[in-house]
Write a protein that binds this DNA or RNA. Structure first.
Ligand code: SF4
Ligand code: SF4
Lengths: 134, 134
DNA sequence: CCTAACAAGACTTTTTTTATCCTTTTAGGG
DNA sequence: CCCTAAAAGGATAAAAAAAGTCTTGTTAGG
C-alpha cells in the first residue's frame, strides 16, 4: 500500500534533473525526458502541472524550454509530490470533518493523522538542493 | 497519495469490531458486516484472508462464525493492514535491490526508506486492544 | 439429510493509472 | 510576414487495479 504512482516518480526525476542543472540553463522537455527515462508526452503533462503552480518556469518557441521556478533549496519534495499526486491522505477521514461519519469517536482516526503528519514532515524536510546534490 | 483502499478500511473496521467483543464470542459475518457498515460479500473475502494467516479463527456450520485469532494486544494495526493491502511500499525501489536500476546512486531512495520505516513504526505501535478500547 | 455458515473461485463493473495524439498558442529568426 | 521550434491544452484510448457480486463447494450441527 501507499505506493507512489509512476506519475509521481517521473515528476520527481524530472524536477530533480532540472535542479541539478546550472542556474538559468533552459532545458528542452525532450532532453529531460530522455535523461530521466520517462515518456516525453507524459512528462509534458507533469511539467504543465508544475508550471501552473510555479514550481517550474516555461518558455515557448525557439530557444524555449523549462527551468526551475525557484532556487532548489526552496522547493521541498513534499511540494513536488503533492503537486502531481494530490495531498498526502493515508485515509480519507484525514481530509477533514464529515468525510467519515464514524470519525467523531473513531480510535483509528488519530493513527492516520499521525501517519499523515510524519510522512509530510519527512518529505518536507528534503529539498531539491538535497536531492540534486548541491 | 498513499491512500488506504476501502478494502483496508473495511478490514480494520471488521477486525476492530471483533476485538471489541467479549472473549470467545463467535460472531456471524453478517452481523459484523451490518455493524461496521461493509458489504457482507466483500467482508467475507477480507476475513478469508485474515483466516489464512491466523489473524482470525473461523468455524463453519450452524453456530459458526469468527473470532480473533490471538488476544487483541498481540495483533498490531500493521499486521492487519499488510494482511490485506500488502507491504508498506511508498515507492517500488524500497521493495529490494534491483527494482530500480537507478537506486544505487539515487538521492531520493533513502527518503522513501525513511517514510516506509516511519509508517511501519506508527502502525506497529498500535494494537487491536488500543483500538477496541481495552 | 437438512440447514447454517464459511471457503473458494470466477466474473463483472467501476475507477484510476498510464499513456498517446492532435490542435492551438507563443516566440524567435530569416 | 512567414516558417519553424517548442510548450499548452484537450480528447481519447488502453491497461491495470479496485470494488463488489455470484455460484458452487465444504464443513458442521441438529
Ligand atoms: S479510520 Fe475511523 S474515522 Fe477514519 S475512515 Fe475509518 S472509521 Fe472513519
Ligand atoms: S526514488 Fe530513485 S531508486 Fe527509487 S524508484 Fe525513483 S529513481 Fe529509482
Amino acid at each position: 500500500m501507499m505506493e507512489l504512482t509512476r506519475k509521481g516518480e517521473y515528476a520527481i526525476r524530472g524536477i530533480v534533473y532540472l535542479a541539478a542543472q546550472p542556474v538559468d540553463r533552459v532545458c528542452l522537455l525532450s532532453d529531460i525526458a530522455a535523461a530521466v527515462d520517462v515518456p516525453a508526452t507524459f512528462l509534458a503533462k507533469i511539467f504543465q502541472q508544475f508550471s501552473k503552480i510555479g514550481l517550474v518556469k516555461s518558455y515557448r518557441g525557439t530557444g524555449g524550454g523549462f527551468l526551475l521556478g525557484r532556487v532548489p533549496e526552496k522547493i521541498t519534495l513534499l511540494e513536488v509530490v503533492e503537486a502531481v499526486e494530490g495531498p498526502i491522505i493515508p485515509n480519507r477521514c484525514v481530509v477533514g470533518a464529515g468525510e467519515c461519519a464514524r470519525d467523531v469517536s473513531c480510535t483509528v482516526h488519530p493513527v492516520w493523522k499521525k501517519v499523515q503528519e510524519q510522512v509530510r514532515a519527512a518529505l518536507e524536510g528534503v529539498t531539491l538542493k538535497d536531492l540534486a546534490g548541491g
